[in-house]
Amino acid sequence: MSAKIFYTMSLVMLFSIPILAQESLLKDLENEQKGNNKISGAFKSSRVINGHSIEMIGAGMMDFRILHRFGPVSQGIGELFGLDQASMRLGFDFGLSKNLTIGVGRTTFKKELDGFLKYRIIQQSTGYKASPVSLVAVAGLSVYTYKNPDPAKPIPFNDRVGSYFQMIVGRKFSDHFSMQLSPTLVHRNLVAANDDNDIFALGFGARYKFTKRMAFVVDYSYVANGLPKTTGANPLSIGVDIETGGHVFQLHFSNSTGMNERSFITETTNTWGSGEVRFGFNLSRIFDIKKSR
């Protein structure tokens, strides 16, 4: 090594060290520490409005969900814009682990019980082994329990059952904006003569968070096949999420009344075009049910 290079290098080192010392001594370590950084909070709740979102409720948590759907707003003041008619679903979701949730619920319409299993396969993350999207799989089952008014013709159990399978791909694009797509297959054991047993739908969900605790949300399902075009409609819900600590309120307007996948995907007959829009809300309250450490 020539003396000149050595001299230059020593000079560089001599001057660069005091300059670096002005900054953080930890810069390199901080950069090294970035690692895999999971992205969470794409949606305020585990549902966009009707459909599942890419969010999970967390290990050891229970989500108590009360859903209400009212009558058409177009009924006017005589029916208090639909509020005189209400159907509801009570549900409990349990976070078995951070990536696995099971849930059960019961809806007043058809006295229907439903349950589901929701598993997050991939969580959106940055850094090492990054993933640009979250991927969530859901499988669910529903059984309606209302009795045929004619006691001589009971409905066999098998005919009461429906099921669905869903993959959700979603991404939190920024602190404000998240979007997801959810191809869904709904199967009904017993259907009307002109309907198909299997219905394929593509769900679309998005939110725009406009304050720390409030967001606009849109939940839409495009029913691709299986429903008679004359009566079937695509459920579209538009609403606002309000988060207040442990509660999330999801207030919305929708053309659907269903509160489980079988119901809102296959039984929506009203349309926004004809003004058959209803008010509804979801109330979610999260409890910590694991043993305190």
Partner: peptide
């Protein structure tokens, strides 16, 4: 001179909801 630096996302809370609120809100 002393420096301390910590990633806020790395804080672990008794439950997932608190952790989300801490980070988000």
């Amino acid at each position: 001179v002393i420096e301390i630096s910590v990633l806020l996302k790395g804080f672990v809370f008794p439950n997932a909801l608190m952790q989300e609120h801490f980070n988000e809100n």
